[in-house]
Amino acid sequence: MNYTLTPLGDRAIVIELGNEITIATHNLVQSVVAFLDQHPFDWITEYIPAFTTVTIFYNPLLVLPKTNQTTSASPYEHVVNELIPYLDNLEENHSELGRTIEIPVCYGGELGPDLPYVAEYHNLSEEQIVDLHSKGDYLVYMIGFAPGFPYIGGMPEDLATPRKDNPRLKIPAGSVGIAGNQTGVYPIETPGGWQLIGRTPLPLFDPELEPPTLLKTGDVIRFKPITKQEFDSYKEDKA
């Protein structure tokens, strides 16, 4: 596969696999992640996959050959030399989709206060917005910004709506929103300028679970409209 390697400071290396957010590049990212999960080098501390990159954090002390710590090559050079043979031979065959996860969403009302605005902005009814938002599959390109926060692609362009002029100081956990041509779900309470169209009763982040987040890179998301009653009973079941 084609890739470039660059340092991110003195303890991390970035594997860059493309320039644009595409499913092809995403599949390359997933191939590297799968490889790293199967071949955990002891000098790797952790890795972070993103839209077009996988960044590996490493321990410079562990990467040097134990027998010859005075080698002239730097830890970074060792990392590069260790990775190249694997990356060169890694096949670009990661095409199977990840798990499909259904996310129940109660649209509109007090849980989606900006749904009327979004509908008005697009000259559509609230029902049409909900249909558009919940009909397609979405791909989780990466997790970042907050625990379990998915950067997802696949929202119909007809739904693109600018952010709010005045960001809210508190967006409740579970809120489903639109910002520009992106849609997303907030796992924890944060400030933000997204247009909130609904809320899911599903917890996206639970520090007591392993893994602690519902979603991971490569998952496919489907939003399923539910009523306020279903939302409440889901919450009660959990409590």
Partner: peptide, 10 residues
Amino acid sequence: RIGYQKHGVI
């Protein structure tokens, strides 16, 4: 917290 950054956990 090491190993959880891929989940968005700082």
